[in-house]
């Protein structure tokens, strides 16, 4: 619950900072006997559930481990191919752990760039003149709030739909960026932010906003 993550995107659409605060873990482990009553497929070089949702295992969930051995891509750590292994009756019963895939760093960079373009398209499609880009997106599971500074930096926060106090947090994040990234003479503008003081202050601000926002709602 609360604030899930923070993204900071530079003028060119590059991700210069990302922080995951509080992402709920969805993991389910279940023992199966042959034949497997769900359809799996390879997607993005990972084994995911294509059809046959059950017991909290949802379509789109990824195979995280089989019999306690972690999966890396489409194979297990010991080198066995997951799809092949699960097609052989001799390997059953088998305990498979499923979970919602976490975003990799590359995916986050890609999503940031995607948001950057969507932001610009939304203002072109505006039915009213002089519209800004996307300031908020609502879905059933999260809310995205974005503020773009006059200089073109975007601060994006992903929160629980019930969270409040977004504007205050965004303003605070901008101040922290101005203080601990820009005033650090060794930080180069437009580049990924790797400053410890920035990290700690940002985390504090996020925690604080989370507490305040939940009592208010």
């Amino acid at each position: 619950m609360g604030i899930y993550s923070v993204y900071i995107i530079n003028k060119a659409g590059g991700l210069i900072y990302q922080f995951d605060n509080n992402i709920p873990k969805t993991e389910v482990e279940k023992t199966f006997s042959y034949p497997l009553e769900m359809t799996l497929k390879i997607y993005d070089d990972k084994v995911v559930v294509a059809f046959g949702q059950r017991d909290g295992i949802k379509v789109g969930h990824r195979v995280l481990s089989v019999n306690g051995i972690n999966a890396t891509g489409r194979c297990l750590e010991d080198g066995r191919d997951i799809m092949e292994m699960l097609s052989q009756e001799a390997n059953y019963p088998v305990a498979i752990k499923f979970g919602r895939p976490r975003l990799s760093t590359n995916e986050k960079i890609m999503l940031a760039g995607m948001f950057h373009s969507l932001y610009a398209i939304a203002c072109q499609l505006s039915p009213m003149p002089q519209s800004s880009g996307i300031q908020g997106i609502e879905t059933d599971t999260f809310k995205l709030t974005c503020s773009q500074t006059l200089t073109g930096i975007k601060f994006v926060i992903i929160t629980d739909p019930k969270q409040t106090g977004h504007d205050l947090l965004l303003k605070k994040l901008y101040e922290i960026y101005a203080d601990y990234a820009l005033k650090n003479p060794f930080y180069s503008i437009e580049m990924p932010i790797r400053c410890e003081l920035f990290d700690t202050n940002l985390q504090q601000a996020v925690e604080m906003a989370e507490r305040l926002g939940l009592t208010a709602s």
């Binding site: 709920p24 009213m128 519209s131």
Partner: peptide
């Protein structure tokens, strides 16, 4: 759907800018 921290049902519902 990729950004969502948990499994979605309806997914995207609305977006807003400062004008619409």
């Amino acid at each position: 759907s990729r950004m969502s921290p948990i499994d979605q049902k309806d997914g995207f519902m609305n977006l807003r800018t400062n004008k619409f």
